[in-house]
Amino acid sequence: MESKMLKPIFIAIFLLFATGSFAQQKQNTVSPGELWKDDQGNHINAHGGGMLYHKGTYYWFGEHKGEKSNNAYVGVTCYSSKDLYNWKNESVALAVEDNPESLIYKGCIIERPKVIYNDQTKKFVMYFHSELFRRGYEAAYTGVAVSDKATGPYQFLSAARVNPGYWPLNMSQDHRRLKLKAEDYGKWWTPKWREGVEQGLFVRENFYSGQMSRDMTLFVDDNGKAYQIYSSEENLTLQIAELSNDYTRHTGKYIRVEPGGHNEAPAIFKRNGKYFMITSGCTGWDPNAARLLVADDILGEWKLYPNPCVGAGAELTFKSQGTYIFPVQGKKDAFIFMADRWRPSNPIDGRYIWLPIQFENDFPVIKWMDRWDLSVFN
């Protein structure tokens, strides 16, 4: 009798597996700060990420983190989605290398990877902040890799500082000619030292080796021109650098933004002909208030505005730090702010804060939502 009763139970369990009822449940909302599982039931591991939309599919690239380290022991991961709610693990797009001579040797630092597509070459181009194995953050390199497929594998091309031998377009001839060095300005954070930073102290120091590049993002303009935006000059000044037509090199054309302003984590988008950039201050892994920069020309003058986040938690950007802003396809004026809630004691458990950008008086506003879906843009 007992065996007869157990048989229907076994049949039911078999049917559950056969019909996929035990598969990861489909999602239809975004829940900022909660565990976000992929198609295999694992928390998505794509921190400091960026988004690429190509031929009907979104591709989310990010840092693969472990439980005890923020260093790159795996590489850059890629996930794909048709609806922005449910994500398929496409595995590792750019793998670290086992050769100790490699600039991306296992255990190095790879942060904030971003991928753009080049219509002319039909290549996918990845940029990332690169630091050498066991050298901390002293290198301040930009890494570049390419692939014929969005999901990879990506071929590592180079890692180096940016635009050696070139002056910023918006640095005056007088400041270029100054011979003063860091020690001539005295202690850091004094008014005299701040004046030195504004006059291009670190630009001059790194003129021949190339400009430092740490937190970064990429942006492709309406005319196909691409730019890298990165935190430079010891994280004191943002720089915006034009990329070559194939997107794999810098052209030597770049500007400084907010010299001495101490901005990092840039995220940029364009709406109605204006460029908007949301950044953060520099407080390590701890959150702080976001900043807003606005310009009419990407290589023109940028103006600083107050925190675009409003409401409870705005003073700490809802306990997160921005990483990317991307448009939702098929919807007008629909942009999503991607941010990370870092957990340095257990990096793999870092959470994702995605929030819709709203507009008030033509300026972006970000408000907290416990749960939302794309209908907010309707």
Rank of each mutant, 00 (worst) to 15 (best):
S3I: 10
K4R: 11
M5N: 15
I11S: 15
F14V: 10
L16V: 12
A18P: 05
S21F: 14
Q25L: 12
K37Q: 07
Q40L: 09
I44L: 02
T57D: 12
S80N: 11
S80E: 09
K82G: 15
K88A: 07
N89R: 03
N89Y: 08
S91E: 04
A95M: 06
R112I: 04
K114D: 13
V115K: 00
I116G: 07
E131C: 02
F133E: 04
G136N: 02
E138R: 02
V144S: 05
V144Q: 02
G152T: 05
A159N: 03
R177G: 13
K179Y: 10
Y185V: 03
W193Y: 15
W193D: 10
E195Q: 08
F202D: 10
N206L: 05
Y208P: 13
L218S: 12
F219I: 01
N223D: 08
K225C: 09
E233N: 08
L236A: 15
N245Y: 14
Y247C: 08
R249E: 14
T251A: 06
P259W: 00
I268R: 00
Y275V: 01
I278E: 12
P287F: 01
N288T: 04
A289Q: 05
L293V: 10
L293T: 08
D297P: 01
I298G: 04
V310W: 11
A312E: 13
K332I: 03
N361V: 01
W368I: 00
D373T: 04
L374S: 09
V376R: 01
N378Y: 07
